[in-house]
Write a protein that binds this DNA or RNA. Structure first.
Length: 429
RNA sequence: GGAGAGUUGGCAGAGUGGUAAUGCACCGGACUCGAAAUCCGGCGAACCGAGCUUAUACUCGGCGCGCAGGUUCAAAUCCUGUACUCUCCUCCA
């Protein structure tokens, strides 16, 4: 959500910033036109209301003194009708303006590479060296199915495409990964939370998914209810403080949560149709921070490094990129993506997305704190995957696969798997 | 799922048609060497708009009693719908 006063005062700057995200100048012009109309109507309506209040007071006095007030009442009847008409117009304009505002993305930070496509993302750093294979590395779904730890046939029968069954050691690996991540985040000072996996519309609006998410049918809404399956734990974590004032001595607040994420993947037809990369339901460990405005840019680096540190311990090669102005999510002012090396695809694939949404979500969700002067200010919110669990399992299977089809388990995960060092083909049932 | 009760300022708590009592807390002042007590004054920094502006400062106005509508010259008060909380019953991991 936007600060209209700020936009009014810095209109050209705002137009340029929105242009970086592909928003046309005409849209902003329309917004300003509506804003002017709205304020004009407010002035008219409010002056009539002031008159009504004054005369009503007189009527009340007249009646108390048993005097006749018919004239005033007749006059106020007309004023009342006029007010009603103005307020109806006002409501209409306001709805239109709100709708327009709700669709405008966050302002990109000056450090964000400007581009109207995803081309132009800046690589910040590359960590680890992709392994040289002396055999042809298999894709993770083949490895998983051969080892009998992933079953995509039965998940298709039972639920449909883009679902999976993890079996035996596969299931154990998934849970080892998320327990490892949660422990790492705990150690870094993030409070662990188990949130609701369904949320109401106000929450979806608060974090910026609605209205676009709804229009694009990007998620799973529960029929005949106001609930939506969460597309990320970011939604219940950020909305934890919706409509609240966080005591400033508590800042920064850091949350982490494991949750399934539910996404319809509409518009992704034909992309990543196999394997664990793009499912309707996947596990993700999420990190969220609430900070004072002056601390949020440091916090973005901090949250990104936290996600990276877990990956380093796993020993999976990755790089970090800063997304372009148009490739970022709607709410972000700057986003660092972490991408892991996937040998079978010979490229890096996203495993984490860390964003500073500045005060954008805080305005929508009304999350504030009191500054040193006791004034209410919007806080800044940040979110980052720390990290996607299914994609981690995919990366482990591919990066640590052996010629004989077995997979080595990263050392840091072995304690989480009863000391197992290697996954070999299992006899299950 | 059924029945009932409730939702008012930071907290407590009045108000059943005439424009939000009161207490506590908080802020300022007086008294005091200082503090406490007492006294005086202030107290919707939730939001919107106008004027004046460097200003989120100030002045004025609107709005404001869970939310959304309706009736009325006038609604916290009356009517309708709805959300949430609590209690009881039912059901259930």
């Amino acid at each position: 959500m936007l600060d209209m006063k700020m936009i009014r005062q810095n209109l050209d700057w705002y137009k340029n910033k929105m242009a970086e995200r592909g928003v046309e100048a005409e849209t902003i012009d329309k917004l300003m036109e509506l804003d002017n109309q709205r304020r004009d109507l407010i002035v008219k309506s409010e002056s009539l209301k002031a008159e009504r209040n004054e005369v009503s007071d007189q009527i009340s006095h007249l009646k108390r003194n048993k005097e006749n007030a018919d004239d005033a009442i007749t006059r106020m009847r007309e004023v009342g009708a006029e007010i009603k008409q103005l307020d109806e117009q006002l409501e209409q304009v306001k709805t239109e303006q709100d709708d327009l505002e709700a669709h405008l993305p966050n302002v990109p930070h000056d450090g964000v590479p400007v581009s109207l496509t995803e081309e132009g993302a800046v690589e910040l750093r590359k960590v680890g060296t992709p392994r040289k294979f002396d055999f042809k590395p298999k894709p993770h779904w083949e490895i998983g199915e051969n080892l009998d730890i992933l079953d995509f046939k039965r998940s298709a029968k039972v639920a449909g495409s883009r679902f999976v069954y993890y079996l035996g050691a596969g299931s154990m690996l998934e849970r080892a990964v998320y327990n490892f991540y949660l422990d790492e985040n705990d150690k870094a000072g993030y409070t662990e939370i188990i949130p609701p996996y369904m949320v109401n519309s106000a929450s979806m609006f608060g974090t910026g998914q609605f209205p676009k998410f709804k229009e694009n049918k990007a998620g799973f809404e529960i029929k005949d209810s106001d609930l939506t399956m969460i597309p990320t734990a970011e939604v219940p974590l950020v909305n934890f403080y919706r409509d609240e004032v966080i005591p400033s001595e508590k800042l920064p607040v850091k949350f982490t949560a494991l949750s399934p994420a539910f996404r319809s993947e509409a518009g992704s037809a034909g992309r990543d149709t196999k394997g664990l990369i793009r499912l309707h339901q996947f596990n993700k460990v999420e990190m969220v921070q609430f900070t004072k405005p002056e601390d949020s840019w440091d916090a973005l680096e901090n949250i990104t490094h936290q996600a990276e540190s877990s990956l380093k311990k796993l020993g999976i090669p990755y790089h970090v990129i800063t997304l372009t102005s148009s490739d970022m999510s709607f709410t972000a002012s700057m986003t660092h993506d972490i991408e892991v090396w996937m040998p079978s695809q010979d490229c890096y694939r996203e495993i984490s997305s860390c964003s500073n949404t500045t005060d954008f979500q805080a305005r929508r969700a009304h999350i504030q704190y009191r500054d040193e002067n006791g004034k209410l200010q919007y806080i800044h919110t940040l979110n980052g995957s720390g990290l996607a669990v299914g994609r981690t399992v995919a990366a482990i299977l591919e990066n640590f696969q052996n010629d004989d089809g077995s997979v080595n388990i990263p050392e840091v995960l072995q304690p989480y798997m009863h000391g197992m060092k290697k996954i070999t083909k299992q006899e299950l049932f």
